[in-house]
Write a protein that binds this DNA or RNA. Structure first.
Lengths: 127, 127
DNA sequence: GGCAAAGGTCTATTTCTTGGACCTAGTCGA
DNA sequence: TCGACTAGGTCCAAGAAATAGACCTTTGCC
């Protein structure tokens, strides 16, 4: 341990760390947003795309692939022409919404405080 | 509304949306990790750096700046030589840990399920 | 004089994202 | 019969962002 560390036991994430493993996937630009959107029910690729608005098709495609890979969502392809693909949450995905809900609720409740902090910060920087 | 949307009311994030505003900041590669680390108490730059392990100094610096800007953490500079800088959570930051805790708890509990989903997926892809 | 310290910043290189063109194949209208 | 259109992607070139590592600061110590 480094002698002037303030934290008694040097806190280091264990490798491999389940929290990091999950956060690395979920904690990207889009995954939480996609899950949030899918809370509203089964949706098609283009509907999700429209709902988020400013995600590129490629990133949406990649994000959906990751979420499917990790078992959060299910992808159902109807081999029609043109193809139809539906996405919906698995039980795992739905169970994830519980803690995620807490987080978005917090975001909603504390948004004002965050904005105020930003303004105060901008003032200090501008002065 | 697009006629074959499966979701009755076309779900689109309002602009500006508090959830997106918060998630865009918090939902990056490192912010959650930094907050998680700071839960353990006041820490210096290099201690946080060591704790996370694979973050670059530049990204850590930027992440800390953002978190300070948004009022999650407090930065205290002691103008000694060499300089000493300590970071700790504000009340806002600490209050954020509550929902975040739920999330990491979920991550811990469901890590195995996620790994299994990944394996199953790899099998399907490999077959 | 020369090195070390902590907390960064600067730069060159690699990696990630983006917007937009393109693909597929069946159905519709002209 | 020809062409356009559809949904869900993929591919590519170009721009944006992250990384590793050199460098900077000021003071104390050998």
């Amino acid at each position: 341990m480094n002698q002037d560390d303030l934290v008694p036991i040097p806190f280091v994430f264990e490798q491999p760390c389940p929290i990091r493993d999950v956060l690395d996937r979920i904690g990207d630009q889009w995954s939480l947003l996609v899950l949030q959107v899918l809370e509203h029910g089964t949706m098609r690729f283009s509907a999700i795309h429209r709902a988020i608005g400013d995600i590129s098709k490629q990133m949406l495609s990649k994000t959906l692939k990751h979420l499917e890979e990790d078992g959060f969502i299910r992808r159902t392809l109807y081999p029609e022409v043109p193809p139809r693909v539906e996405y919906d949450l698995t039980d795992l995905g739905r169970s994830f919404l519980v803690p995620m809900k807490q987080l978005t609720l917090w975001a909603d409740e504390n948004h004002r405080a965050i904005c105020e902090a930003r303004e105060k910060h901008a003032d200090r920087a501008g002065a």
